[in-house]
């Protein structure tokens, strides 16, 4: 058990309490025409609501252009929400001043997709890991060194002394990603946002890194938001899944529920589209909805998936946006097919 977890247990903290609460979040980016005129908004996140509990891993699954990156960056504090609330540890992000945001940043870790790009190429590992500590106000040099060593040991990069003077280009992809994870963990955050952390790594390394993340999550009782487009990794690493399409969350449920009983037609399509190594695949065509995800500037009226949905209800799906329905407990889906 980690120090922070032990402390939490001692304080009788509710280990399952809600850590992060997103309420009707909208993140719109203004489109400028010729730098002056207003040409509309890119509605990257258009009404997203969910909760994350302590120690819980949530996978946000969706294809490129669905807004998951913007959602994640807004949670990280890099973008300002256009509408809606983000409440972390009972503090509304809107109310935080610069110092408050500083505090928030040290409680959230960010693991990015491209391990090489995420590390400054002109700094060595020690310096890279030292930066968040310095910014976070850890003044004592000894303490910084200790924390750096601990972080590297936790991501299983040993012997630590071998890695401290190395520069990013001297490390393999997997090692680079470990450094990124160590950097995210070094301030002992309460939660981690991982954006496609393994998609740029080799197949055999992916599993290692995912296992490492899971181990860290268990050890520190971390909450993790795991963003991916690869459904096959989800069952190893998450408890709940949110499926995102064109700025909305179309299905929210436990992983087992979604994998065994996918409800939203888009979710069904995603599962069908995901391949497993099976020679019979070569003889069958996959049934997938035609077309492409819509533009976020002018999304289709009503349910945004209706132009591609084979099960669209005429007169309903193209007019009204569906709310969340709950056909089975804990399994929410935004689809008129499940209106009771």
């Amino acid at each position: 058990m980690s120090a922070s977890l032990a402390k939490a247990v001692e304080n009788k903290e509710d280990l399952r309490k809600v850590l992060l609460s997103i309420d009707d979040l909208h993140v719109w980016f203004e489109l400028r025409k010729f730098g002056f005129g207003h040409a509309g908004y890119v509605k990257a996140v258009d009404g997203v609501t969910f909760d994350v509990h302590r120690g819980e891993t949530i996978a946000v699954v969706g294809e490129s252009g669905c807004g998951k990156s913007s959602l994640m960056k807004t949670i990280l504090g890099l973008y300002k929400p256009t509408k809606g609330e983000i409440i972390f540890d009972d503090k509304n992000l809107k109310d935080l001043d610069t110092k408050g945001m500083h505090w928030y940043h040290s409680h959230v870790g960010y693991v990015q997709q491209d391990p090489y790009g995420a590390l400054p190429s002109f700094m060595n590992v020690k310096r890279i890991l030292e930066e968040p500590l310095i910014i976070g106000g850890v003044k004592d040099k000894e303490e910084r060194n200790q924390r750096i060593r601990k972080a590297l040991e936790e991501v299983k990069m040993s012997p630590v002394d071998d890695f401290l003077p190395k520069y990013p280009h001297m490390l393999s992809g997997g090692q680079q990603q470990r450094v990124v994870i160590a950097r995210a963990m070094i301030m002992e955050p309460k939660f981690l946002v991982a954006d496609e952390p393994v998609s740029m790594l080799d197949a055999s390394v992916r599993v290692e890194i995912l296992k490492l993340l899971r181990g860290l999550q268990e050890l520190h009782h971390l909450s993790v938001i795991y963003i991916t487009h690869d459904l096959s990794t989800v069952s190893y690493f998450s408890e709940r899944i949110f499926v995102m399409y064109a700025g909305n969350l179309v299905e929210k449920a436990k992983v087992r529920q979604v994998l065994d009983n996918p409800l939203h037609p888009y979710t069904v399509a995603l599962l069908t589209g995901t391949s497993e190594p099976d020679a019979k695949n070569a003889d069958t065509y996959k049934e997938i909805p035609p077309g492409e995800p819509p533009s976020l500037v002018k999304p289709p009226p009503g349910c945004r998936f209706h132009p591609r949905c084979s099960k669209a209800i005429k007169g309903l799906c193209e007019i009204k946006e569906p709310p969340d329905f709950e056909p089975e407990p804990g399994h929410l889906v935004a689809c008129w097919l499940y209106e009771k």
């Binding site: 960056k73 990280l76 870790g109 491209d114 968040p132 910014i135």
Partner: peptide, 17 residues
């Protein structure tokens, strides 16, 4: 727009830094 700048903003680096 590089990733590492984004990461720096995420762990709270100030503008001048």
């Amino acid at each position: 727009e590089s990733s590492y700048i984004e990461a720096a903003r995420a762990y709270g680096a100030s503008n001048s830094r």
